[in-house]
Design a protein around this nucleic acid. Structure first.
Length: 493
RNA sequence: GGGUCCUUAGCUCAGCCGGUAGAGCAGCUCCCUUUUAAGGAGUUGGUCGUGCGUUCGAAUCGCACAGGACCCA
């Protein structure tokens, strides 16, 4: 028998049809005057003597999660958005609706009115005087003790996961809180939150394959954005000076525990500041988030404790490459044939057009990146792989840029912005050359962005933070799917 | 893209050197007026992910496919 028409559903459907024959099966005239958690918190101190002397009448409603019928009396627990409260039901008080209740199922949504009292074991409960079925649930919930563990069902039918798994609800509440705290943090610093286009004629601001769509009225190809960067910096040219955006980016790439095709990114741009200021800001932000949502500066993630109290390590790409590859000669880190030989030795594929900067990064990613457990700012990113970053004054092979790693993952990327329109035009030309050489992640030449820079962009620092990965870290979630309400999955067969 | 493992009742899981499919919870019938995974008695429920093969016989062995988990690139 298929899941769509199994016996349990058939039985519940018959119960629904019986309710329909009696009248309105899906009433919407019941109103609550209390939530479960409020009821419990407001009367935590009160014993039965107090409750008898000061009767508290409440109207509560929610989904029935437990049901224990004992002849002429029953207990049930209902869950609302705040938590659960127990109902005590007696045939003597409820009459006909008690008989009806015995036929209702775990999962049904009920409304109850009654007075508070404590049971023999001291649990604050509602002695129900009026009970109504508000919504019949046709599908059985997962096992009350084991809950729902099958990841496929948890992700595909998130509504079921949210009904039965408290921890899952807690993660998403925490996610919302984290995002709100980030906004508060930036708003306090006089940043302005803005919205920029998700559909773009050119997908710029990052190295990634875009999703392609089509605008019918204009008969033109458009792209879902891979980053908001170039639009936000136009706003810096416009004089907004401190802007940020928290919203979705789309990258047409594979799925993994750390990648979803659409993911949430914070990007902020801060005029009259440089990349060092961003490192300080990120350090402060992470600490304040950990204290607010993870219980302190010692954050436990997947069994390991991360101490955010100590200053975060700051180390260059070159130093990490040398640290993890003792055979590499520090004097030859910009020697292309030498680095190619090392890539071959390490089994790293490379393209003919790759220069020393790109090869360094390949070696870094293969040998060092995953070892960066404790919070670490990696600096000294080569200009070749940083087409939008300001070149370092002392060493233009490098840029004033960092990436931030924790638990072996990239969490943020920040740099002093390239505001020299002629340098930027030259970098775009290099990207176009790479694209023509077959690198489909290379950038386009964005003429309007160059025009904006030609009006003059003040010296600026810009930071991007992967919100999903940040939430994963702060909620101890092993997979990005655990922090996305509806993660991308292959279609159901 | 490569490797390892998983898919059996609504849920959580046994069964896997081939011999007609099992438990707990949920459901159904009955008993029970203070339960806490309530308890007691009885009982229903399965194209064992899909397809092809090996075999007298396949949940079990082989191959392919689909979906999922983890590791690697």
């Amino acid at each position: 028998m298929s899941e769509e028409e199994n016996k349990l559903i058939t039985e519940r459907r018959a119960k629904l049809h019986a309710v329909r024959r009696e009248g309105v099966a899906f009433p919407n005239d019941f109103r609550r005057n209390a939530l479960a958690a409020e009821v419990l918190a407001n009367h935590a101190e009160h014993d039965n003597a107090w409750l008898e002397a000061n009767p508290v009448r409440v109207q509560v409603g929610g989904r029935m999660m437990f049901k224990r019928v004992m002849g002429k009396a029953s207990f049930a627990k209902i869950a609302d958005r705040s938590g659960q409260v127990q109902l005590f039901l007696q045939e003597a008080t409820l009459g006909e609706s008690y008989e009806a209740f015995k036929g209702w199922d775990v999962g049904d949504i009920l409304g109850a009115e009654g007075v508070l009292f404590r049971t023999r074991t001291g649990e604050l409960s509602v002695r129900v005087e009026t009970l109504r079925l508000l919504t019949k649930s046709l599908r059985p919930l997962p096992d009350k003790w084991h809950g729902l563990t099958d990841t496929d069902t948890r992700y595909r039918q998130r509504y079921v996961d949210l009904i039965v798994n408290d921890e899952s609800r807690a993660v998403f509440r925490k996610r919302t809180r984290i995002v709100r705290l980030v906004r508060d943090f930036l708003d306090t610093m006089d940043f302005t939150e803005v919205e920029t286009p998700m559909m773009q004629p050119l997908a710029g601001g990052a190295a990634a394959r875009p999703f392609v769509t089509h605008h019918n009225a204009l008969d033109m190809q458009m792209f879902l954005r891979i980053a908001p960067e170039l639009y936000l910096k136009r706003l810096i040219v416009g004089g907004l000076e401190r802007v940020y955006e928290i919203n979705r980016n789309f990258r047409n790439e594979g799925l993994s525990t750390q990648h979803n095709p659409e993911f949430t990114m914070l990007e902020l741009y801060w005029a009259f500041r440089d990349f060092r200021d961003l490192m300080d800001l990120l350090e402060r932000l992470l600490r304040s988030l950990a204290e607010a949502v993870a219980g302190g500066l010692q954050v436990s993630y997947q069994g390991r404790v991360y101490d955010l109290a100590v200053p975060f390590r700051r180390v260059s790409v070159a130093d990490l490459v040398l640290e993890h590859n003792p055979g590499i000669d520090a004097a030859r880190l910009r020697d292309v044939p030498y680095l190619r030989a090392w890539c071959e030795k390490l089994g790293i594929p490379f393209k003919p057009g790759d220069g020393a900067g790109k090869l360094q990064i390949e070696i870094f990613e293969k040998t060092a990146e995953h070892t960066l457990q404790d919070p670490t700012f990696v600096t000294g990113y080569p200009a070749e792989v940083s087409p939008l970053s300001r070149a370092n004054d002392a060493d233009p092979f490098l840029t004033d840029r960092f990436e931030f790693f924790i638990a072996g993952r990239e969490l943020a990327n920040g740099f002093s912005e390239l505001n020299d329109p002629e340098d930027q035009a030259e970098r775009f030309h290099q990207q176009v050359a790479r694209k023509e050489a077959g690198d489909d992640e290379a950038m386009h030449y964005d003429a309007d962005y160059i025009r904006a820079l030609e009006y003059g962009m003040p010296p600026t620092a810009g930071l991007g933070i992967g919100i999903d990965r940040l939430v994963m870290f702060l909620t101890d979630a092993p997979s990005i799917r655990d922090v996305l309400l509806f993660p991308h999955l292959r279609p159901e067969s």
